[in-house]
Amino acid sequence: MIINLSGKTAIVTGSTGGIGLAIAKGLAEAGASVVICGRQQDHVDAALNQLRPTQAGAQARGVVADLGTAEGCQALISTEPQADILVNNLGVYGAKAFFDISDADWEEIFQINVLSGVRLARHYALGMQARGWGRIQFISSESALNIPSEMLHYGVSKAALQGLSRGLAKVLAGSGVTVNTILPGPTRTEGAIAFIENMARERGVSATEMEALFLVENRPSSLIRRFASPEEVANLCVYAASPQASATTGSALRVEGGIVESIA
């Protein structure tokens, strides 16, 4: 299968590292003109440098904005008013006991993980609908289905994306615009590596040992029995953004290593 996204503009939020950067690179390698988004200019510049060798690297550009705010979303929209592909990857997470999660914590995680996607989809979907083609993705998590007790607010925010994506797919039914969620499992991103290293120090074990312990203790149903790479997640995102995925919409596409105990 040859995926050709030449002539398409793709916006990937939270794309200066990790899964977001891997998605941006994958889309650029398929020929899309990619817009990198991040809060710091130096991080955006570093990400753009990684896209330069790709097929559409010369067309890649960046926007510096805090998309966890309404003002930041509007800044992106003002700079890039049109897109054919929107990947809402921006998200934060962190372990915190339920009884310690404050109202401010809940508000922050919903502003970043959920409302950023709402605001951007509300704008870009209209243009896609008018042109009769578009791809919208929300990067969710297997935690949307297996709500983790150690970061309940994160799991709930990802579950909200599942409902948002399915509902928006219905709103755009028959328009040529597809809307899907992508559900990664534990993925070896910079943030996950730091998370595991912190746990390793607390437990007095190596990071490699802690990664294995984390899977046994927190994700025992994993079938690949390892963390995925960002590129493995990005491969599914690039396919879902392609013309070949035209009949896939309203779906939760899993790339979580078989953690979810379901045959559906």
Rank of each mutant, 00 (worst) to 15 (best):
N4D: 15
A10Q: 00
G14Y: 00
T16R: 01
G17H: 08
I19C: 08
I23D: 01
E29N: 15
A30L: 01
V35Q: 00
I36W: 05
C37W: 00
Q41A: 15
D45V: 15
A47V: 11
A47P: 14
L48M: 07
P53V: 00
G57V: 08
A58R: 15
V63S: 00
G68Y: 01
T69K: 08
A70C: 06
E71Q: 15
I77R: 05
S78W: 01
T79Y: 05
Q82T: 13
D84T: 12
V87R: 06
N88W: 11
L90E: 15
V92P: 02
V92W: 03
G94I: 09
K96H: 05
D100T: 08
I101N: 11
A104I: 06
A104S: 14
D105P: 11
N113V: 07
V114C: 12
S116K: 02
G117D: 02
V118E: 04
Y124H: 09
Q129T: 11
G132Y: 07
W133S: 05
F138G: 02
I139E: 03
S141A: 06
E142P: 02
I147D: 01
M151I: 04
M151F: 11
M151R: 13
M151Y: 10
L152E: 02
V156G: 01
A159R: 05
A160M: 01
L161K: 04
Q162G: 03
L164S: 03
S165D: 04
R166D: 04
R166I: 09
L168K: 05
K170S: 10
L172C: 07
G174M: 05
G176S: 09
L183R: 03
P186D: 11
R188Y: 07
E190R: 12
I193H: 10
A194S: 13
I196E: 05
R201L: 12
E202Y: 01
R203P: 03
G204A: 02
V205S: 06
V205T: 14
A207I: 05
E211Q: 15
E211D: 07
F214V: 06
P220R: 09
S222P: 09
S222T: 15
L223P: 04
I224V: 15
R225S: 10
F227N: 03
F227M: 13
S229Q: 14
S229Y: 09
P230W: 06
E231L: 10
E232K: 09
A234L: 12
L236T: 13
L236D: 04
V238W: 06
V238L: 08
A240K: 07
A241N: 13
S242P: 13
A245E: 12
S246R: 14
S246T: 13
S251T: 15
S251R: 13
A252W: 04
R254Q: 14
I259C: 11
V260T: 14
S262R: 08
